[in-house]
Design a protein around this nucleic acid. Structure first.
Length: 199
DNA sequence: CTACCGATTGACT
DNA sequence: GTCAATCGGTAGA
């Protein structure tokens, strides 16, 4: 059961935090795959210089200006990255899904990534997209419809509290002071170098 | 049209 | 630890 639109219609930092532990699910004719979201980053509309939308709408970032709960997929360095759009239409904020812990369809993800290392399947935003076969075709995709690509509660969560840490965003030069990266503490599928957790 | 740059990754010292 | 491949998006002439 996919998360509903209301989930995404909130403060981006809150949505980011709550996306941790949720299931990212991908279904193709080849089968199902996906896993648990372990790392995300929030990008806050126009006031945030690191956000693609901070300089207004362009062809690339138009999806960010649309309804919440859709996928914003963009290319960087010849690789795709997946975001979930948050807040009401016209407030262009989004959450970058940076890493998942692979749980389902590992064989499919190995094929697509061409690696034997489970840890390298979806650790990093572009690796994740390669593992799940996400590209430009999914820019604007409705993540609340429960088809092909969606986000759902983790059936194995059982209400267990998550140990969450936050830090500055990775690969960003501006606005490093903002702690908008959220990740699960001590999870080996989180990307980036080991750094101090600012809680 | 050209020039520059990036929310990355993987190969290499 | 460092560094370059690689190419679409964007701004500017």
């Amino acid at each position: 059961m996919a998360l509903k639109r209301e989930f995404y219609l909130r403060e981006p930092a809150v949505v980011a935090r709550e996306l941790l532990g949720k299931r990212l699910v991908r279904e193709t004719s080849a089968g199902m795959c996906g896993g648990r979201i372990v790392e995300v980053e929030a990008y806050l509309s126009r006031r945030d210089p690191a956000c693609h939308a901070s300089r207004g709408m362009t062809r690339r970032n138009a999806t960010m200006f649309g309804p919440a709960g859709r996928a914003y997929v963009y290319m960087i360095h010849s690789r795709w990255c997946l975001n979930a759009v948050t807040e009401p239409g016209g407030v262009p904020s989004a959450i970058l899904i940076r890493a998942i812990e692979p749980l389902e369809g590992l064989d499919l993800m190995h094929q697509r990534r061409r690696t034997e290392m489970v840890r390298d399947l979806a650790r990093g935003p572009a690796r994740l997209c390669e593992a799940l076969a996400i590209d430009r075709a999914y820019d604007g995709w409705d993540l609340t419809a429960g088809q092909e690509l969606w986000i759902a509660e983790d059936p194995e969560a059982n209400g267990k509290p998550l140990r969450i840490a936050r830090s500055g965003r990775i690969g960003i030069s501006s606005a490093q002071r903002r702690l908008l990266r959220f990740y699960l503490l001590d999870n080996r599928y989180v990307s980036g170098r080991v750094r101090r957790a600012a809680t």
